[in-house]
């Protein structure tokens, strides 16, 4: 019955309360409107809170990491400063040590030279005294060699008279 009507009428609107089932539909839609947002909303709220918590956590971690980075950078720069200070100090120190050791070496050299010189002179005097001793010995030996030939009666008499003369003079 309705169908034939619909088929001939073409497009249009139907406001028949019972044919359109609009009353039951309204109840269903109202029920959904009443309960679905509560059910879904709770779930979505929980989800959102979880995400916000994670976001906050991540942001906190980012902040901490940034601060740590900042601190590490500061530490690094101070360490670099320290290192350069130490380098300067040690350079200075090494320079002074070098100077000192140079000075010492020069002094040592001077001392060694001095002692070498004194050694040399003592060696020379020793050699001279040796030579002198040898010369004396040779002279004595020569004298002793020639003595037996030169000793005879006349010489002895001469010597004795000379000696007596000497005593008389005295």
């Amino acid at each position: 019955m309705n169908l034939t009507l619909l088929a001939t009428e073409g497009f249009g609107l139907n406001f028949n309360l019972f044919e359109t089932n609009i009353l039951n539909w309204a109840v269903v839609v109202f029920g959904l409107y009443k309960f679905l947002p509560g059910f879904l909303g709770k779930m979505l709220q929980k989800r959102r809170e979880g995400i916000l918590l994670e976001l906050k956590d991540a942001e906190d971690r980012l902040l901490n990491a940034t601060q740590a980075l900042e601190k590490a950078k500061k530490d690094l720069s101070s360490a670099e400063e320290k290192a350069s200070q130490i380098k300067v100090d040690s350079l200075k120190r090494s320079e002074s040590i070098r100077m000192e050791s140079e000075k010492k070496a020069i002094e040592e050299m001077a001392r060694i030279k001095q002692s070498a010189i004194s050694d040399e002179s003592s060696e020379a005097s020793r050699a001279i005294s040796q030579l002198r001793k040898e010369a004396v010995e040779q002279a004595i030996k020569k004298a002793l060699d020639s003595l037996p030939n030169r000793l005879d009666k006349t010489t002895q008499e001469n010597l004795v008279t000379q000696s007596i003369n000497n005593i008389e003079v005295n």
Binding site: A7, G10, F11, G12, N14, T20
Partner: peptide, 15 residues
């Protein structure tokens, strides 16, 4: 299909 009141609209044939 269930939540839009389609039947308010009349078609020449079918629904």
């Amino acid at each position: 299909g269930a939540l839009i009141p389609w039947r308010l609209i009349k078609l020449p044939s079918g629904e």
